[in-house]
Nucleic acid binder design. Sequence first.
DNA 1: GTTCTAGAAC
DNA 2: GTTCTAGAAC
Length: 335
Amino acid sequence: MIGCWLVSKDGKHEPIRLPHTETVLIGRGPETLITDRKCSRNQVQLKADCNKGYVKVKQIGTNPTSIDSEDIGNEQEMKLKPGQTLYIVNNLYPYFIEFCESQEPDIKMKNSEKSSLKRASVNSLNGSMETSKKSAKKESNIFPSSTSHLTIMAKTHWNQGLKVSMQDPTMQVFKDDRVVVIKDKYPKARYHWLVLPWESIATLKVLRTEHLDLLQHMHATGENIVKEHANIKLTSFRFGYHAIPSMSHVHLHVISQDFDSSCLKNKKHWNSFTTEYFLESQDVIEMVKNHGRVTVKDDISELLKSPLRCHICKQQQSTVPQLKEHLKKHWPSKQ
DNA sequence: GTTCTAGAAC
DNA sequence: GTTCTAGAAC
């Protein structure tokens, strides 16, 4: 059975179990060890849905509770998904959620020194962390003790895949002090790279004017990667971001416009690169310049369901295989 | 994000 | 009958 756990990023205390569809109130108190008077005793109401893979978070206290950098608002509700960070109050007390299949969640804890039994270390984003076995607790909502296996390898949710790939030297095409470039694991065209900042930026929503230099550097890095491939002069490229990416960690797509790839399989793939769901890098930069942040229409995901239309001649196609056949017409003929 | 597959579409 | 999509599971 799948369980959901609320994990303190600081490792201040053991994970708190969020039973499926049960309402759990969290705030100042012995369970969280939060003593901050700005935090209400019932600051947030949490309701996990293990089937849907998220936790509904309702702000009950007056002071702001936020997810990543977005305030939920008094009496308002937001979905907390794996990979996102919940700040209980005033951007403090960070938590994340983890779904796991057993009663023994695999949790990465930073301050394993607190733990009595040290476990095998695992490589993770922030360098070496250790997973730890916690002392046994009888209470049902407390992280239970491990029984048999000696090594707990922390399971990573699929949406954290980029964070793993960008750290892997075998995946890196280029890197400097600010960014790293990797090939997309499932390229949707002959050339498909991702430019990622080392700085952990969860989503486009957290971008502010202080990120402008970085965004411009990401774009310039993408241009350089394209230039390095001198044999692709006939290929055009687009640089942009998905409005609502599946993978955590902001990444700039640098993709050739042939869309000749066996990994391009469905309508969602196609529309994510050929409709306004694909936010042009320069437009994102301009948006941050002019408005201080990036805003995305609420119903932007509807674009993923749009009819299949050729990005060059705009002709509509009825199926993905037909579209892929049609695209060949636009490929430059080889000399 | 991908994979798998039921059932819709042809 | 086969092809293809879309939603669940991962």
